[in-house]
Design a protein around this nucleic acid. Sequence first.
DNA 1: CCTCCACAGGAAGCGCAGGAGT
DNA 2: ACTCCTGCGCTTCCTGTGGAGG
Length: 411
Amino acid sequence: MSIDEIFESAMVSKIFANREVLMPDYIPKELPHRESEIRRVASVLAPALRGERPSNLFIYGLTGTGKTAVIKRVMIKLVEAVSRNSSRVKPIYVNVKQRDTPYRVMVDLAESIGLRVPFTGLSTGEVYSRFTKKLSKMQGVYIIVLDEIDFLVKKHGDDLLYKLTRINEVIENAKVSLVGITNSVSFVEELDPRVKSSLGEEEIVFPPYNAEQLKDILETRAAKAFKPGVLDEDVIPLCAALAAREHGDARRALDLLRVSGEMADRLGDDRVTRRHVLMAREEIERDRVGEVVRTLPLHSKLVLASVTALTMGGRTYATTGEVNSYYRELVKKLGLESITLRRLSGILGELDMLGLISARVISKGRYGKTRIIELSSDPEAVIKALGDDIELAPVIGEIARNALGKRGSMR
DNA sequence: CCTCCACAGGAAGCGCAGGAGT
DNA sequence: ACTCCTGCGCTTCCTGTGGAGG
């Protein structure tokens, strides 16, 4: 295929009419099965149009239940209403998971009102006071949305949150209300009671979608995204069913549908079939694993490599102690300094949170307490991603060969 | 019923890089 | 040039603990 042909075929898809509609950051006009949530959010924020401060709002719901889409949709509508109305409302959206330190969140907030702040070098307090100073001189209602706020609190406490809930006492003209969005319901219990009561003036819970509802969502999007008649009839139900298994995550369902389409496109097929969905599912998993693994620090990679090596072949799990001794051998081979057991234990916890491994603590009575560690992602994807790190090449090669050997002997 | 293993996981703090202000 | 700030990966020191074996 010539370059021209590649570009040509990339421009005219046989499958997609408008792929954008399936992208994670696309905010649709219609959000099926979220009508009542939209109404509630809108009615909480509506006082902003009269120049009053809306109540602070807390939104709970698992990932992919439409929290972000709903709040963004309402904000868009709010801004539209404002331009007709002449009052001044400014929504500020920060995804805390991507900016997961108090400092970076403050930087985002500051930048959103037109302050220029360095990404390091100042104290958080300094950025905060510049922020309030500027805000004092401004007019209007500011709605600060902190998405996935639990990540910030879990790692750095609720200090910043506490300050933000009290910001109205400090500033003069502008009014600020907060919208907190969280995936974890239990997280609220860990908050300072003052923060809890202030932030939870209004609360809305987003229930997960069931397979039927996911189907509706996929169908409305698919109607815009795909050319007519390219989807096999069992594609959407399959995407919906697979995502419903993952606690009704709409984002996963949409990803699956989009990647299925991309698969068909890439293979030059005219229709999207069940087969493409199954391929898409694997590809998504590989991508996720690859990306997470690649950004890991060196010793985390080594720990992961140890877990992988130990859990391949006959063994299904390893204990912390086993991982530690394997890890120390790897380190020795590479001529590096090893980390302590305490740190290794912490890394295992982190890898667990990232979903690369699954670890649960058990007691073996007389023989102590330990973690039972399993690899919860595709070993080949992990090895491949680890192999991209040149520093690890010598040891990964051996582990990979070992894995292939063991699999071969099992056949 | 008590012990004691093999760790879990909290707390504090260190050294470094990147950067601001003075 | 100097001090002070942050995040990050890490260490040191520590207390806590489920349950098999005595």
